[in-house]
Simulated assay, not measured.
Amino acid sequence: MERVWYVAYGSNLALGRFRCYLAGGRPAGGARVYPGCRDHSDPERVAGVEFPGGLVFAGQSLVWGGGSAFYNPAASGQVAGRAYLLSADQLGDVAAQEMRREPGGEFARDLAGLLAVVDTLHTMGPGRYETVARLGELDGIPMFTVTHGTVADLVPVAPTAAYLRWIAAGLVEAHGWGSDRIVEYLHAAPGVQLGWTPGALRSALDGYAGGGG
């Protein structure tokens, strides 16, 4: 399997932030410098996608503080994502960096090698992003994302403003959503309402989310 879609649903919705995983660097507001993939190339194509499931914020992000975004395939609803056409090796390196592992290391190679046999979910380990989910196909090419293997058991935690701003910016880029829709979408995700009212969320995202509607 040479080409795959990596589907982002958190801060990697924003291409500028995702490029830190591809080419290396530190995203604005983040606390980590990423080494980047072995292949620093930009995605061959980028597409906005939606897929069944739900978004939940939990754990403690070492990059942003607060909860991290996870995909819950068992939840009802739709998740707004952004698909990036990459090589299988790039996807392996992206997932490895999610787990603070070395691009090109054993985890990255193992993940890239198993993509061809993932039908729905494949859990590689207990870590935060060590479960690969197949989300169907786009233009005949399989789509994958990564999440927590027991996401339904996670305790929701409120995310930080810096993290939510990248997600909001990515929702504008990928889907052209306005601020009303972004606030409604994010506030409905478990974890967000623990730290944010809709009004506070709107204020925090001002300038990052689109206009009304």
Rank of each mutant, 00 (worst) to 15 (best):
V4Q: 08
S11L: 05
L13P: 01
C20Y: 00
C20D: 00
C20L: 00
Y21W: 12
Y21E: 11
A23H: 03
A23I: 01
R26Q: 15
P27Y: 04
P27M: 15
G29P: 02
R38T: 09
E44R: 15
A47Q: 14
P52D: 09
G54H: 10
G54E: 11
L55H: 07
A58N: 07
G59N: 10
L62M: 10
F70G: 05
F70C: 08
A75N: 06
S76E: 15
G81M: 12
R82W: 06
A83R: 13
S87L: 03
A88F: 06
L91T: 11
D93G: 07
Q97E: 10
Q97W: 06
E102L: 09
G104L: 04
E106D: 13
E106V: 12
L111R: 09
A112E: 10
L115W: 12
A116D: 14
V117C: 08
T120V: 08
L121T: 10
H122S: 08
M124L: 15
R134V: 04
D139Q: 12
I141N: 11
F144D: 05
A152M: 02
A162G: 05
Y163D: 04
R165G: 13
E173T: 07
A174V: 04
H175L: 09
G176Q: 05
S179P: 00
R181P: 01
I182R: 07
L186A: 08
G191R: 11
Q193I: 02
G195W: 05
W196D: 10
R202E: 13
L205D: 07
G207D: 02
G213E: 14
